[in-house]
Design a binder for these strands. Structure first.
Lengths: 128, 128
DNA sequence: AATTACGTTTACGTTAACGTTAACTTGGTC
DNA sequence: GACCAAGTTAACGTTAACGTAAACGTAATT
């Protein structure tokens, strides 16, 4: 059980963003680091949270939507109704993700074609 | 060989965007419809182009990057050097897409967990 | 002739996600 | 004690991707 902490520039360096970005996330209520005097101290949990936010960004999610997805994990769902609405949220998210995978696969197929044409063209001009 | 054309609202309706969006794309040089008097006329090729732009959007690409990807198809690559740089561009794009698929799969796995927990919880409370 | 539907241009407004100074504090180091 | 690196707050600036409103044209309908 280590209670390692990170400075803001630690995390900025690790994730390839600026410190401004991380402070901005706090400003928007996405993370809540502790303070040691003035300075922000990030726990491993904070770190993971930021990591997941950035993962969301990579696939085109807004910061808000990333947080929404992340917060699906914490159990603030007590009654049956909430559980059902949670499940339907999960189902919606999943649909979008599956569509995105389709889109990506189509685009990958396109790239494969382009590359094949390129290589063929190089081969031909070689034997000219 | 049909030379079907589409009005701007045809395409807007089909793709679930506003006409403003489509005009905006033209303003940015992403599409170049013909004119019949004042009115814009979109060819099937234009239509596909817009469709591909929106596909790019769905996976978080900027409009510019979508166009960049689309334009990989048209053969303005004559010499060997250009072909090589084209291939390396393709390779880069592919890397990003593969990373995105990873991200999506991770997120999907997370959603599966959440759903499983939900269903378990519902099952438990049923037998309470 | 008036309304309705669809189209046009021009231009200012908006939101998200930071970037970019500026001005200041704080803890070590030479 | 001067200096430097790393931190802080506060505030204005920027870009992308449209939204929104005004003011107008055109063709078909009533």
């Amino acid at each position: 059980m280590q209670d390692k902490t990170y400075s803001i520039s630690d995390l900025a360096a690790e994730f390839g963003v600026t410190t401004r970005t991380i402070r901005f996330y706090e400003e928007k209520g996405l993370v809540h680091p502790q303070r040691e005097g003035q300075k922000r101290l990030y726990t491993p949990a904070d770190r993971v949270r930021i990591k997941l936010i950035l993962r969301g960004k990579r696939i085109g999610m807004s910061l808000q939507e990333s947080v929404e997805v992340i917060d699906l994990y914490d159990p603030e769902h007590n009654n049956e109704e909430q559980l059902h609405s949670l499940i339907s949220t999960v189902t919606e998210k999943r649909q979008r993700l599956l569509q995105q995978k389709k889109d990506i696969d189509e685009m990958l197929a396109g790239l494969d074609e382009v590359q094949a044409l390129c290589e063929q063209s190089l081969k031909d001009s070689h034997g000219k």
